[in-house]
């Protein structure tokens, strides 16, 4: 299973195995990783799974577009060029080892 490394705002690191096809948000909430709320369950409706993708992974993950980009305009923590919503990133073998940093708060 591909691994995703979540780094909380205070530096706490979680390496989580996430089933192929699950989202970065699901990987966090199913393993009680602090810092991702994922309140709406992946419906692109709440902007509470905001994360910052590590620079080194941006070319593989890509930037936010369309409805996701619009939703990111209303996140609680600052939007950066590496901002994504975790529910919109599908984990795969190609993303094995993905590093995402989590904002201090989601709302």
């Amino acid at each position: 299973m591909p691994a995703v490394i979540y780094i909380e705002h205070d530096g706490t690191q979680h390496q989580v195995e996430v089933p192929d096809g699950d989202s970065v948000m699901q990987g966090a909430v199913n393993n009680m990783v602090n810092g991702v709320a994922g309140e709406c369950g992946g419906g692109l409706a709440c902007a509470t799974c905001h994360c910052y993708v590590d620079e080194a992974w941006m070319d593989r993950v890509g930037t936010a577009t369309g409805a996701e980009s619009e939703m990111l305009e209303a996140t609680f923590s600052e939007r950066k060029p590496t901002s994504r919503l975790g529910c919109q990133i599908a984990v795969s073998e190609a993303l094995d080892g993905l590093v995402v940093r989590l904002p201090e708060t989601q709302y």
Binding site: N34, E39, C40, G41, G42, G43
Partner: peptide
């Protein structure tokens, strides 16, 4: 901060 459950959660979380 921890997510609270005032608005439930998941697909039926409070819109």
């Amino acid at each position: 901060r921890k997510p609270i459950l005032a608005f439930a959660g998941g697909v039926h979380s409070c819109m």
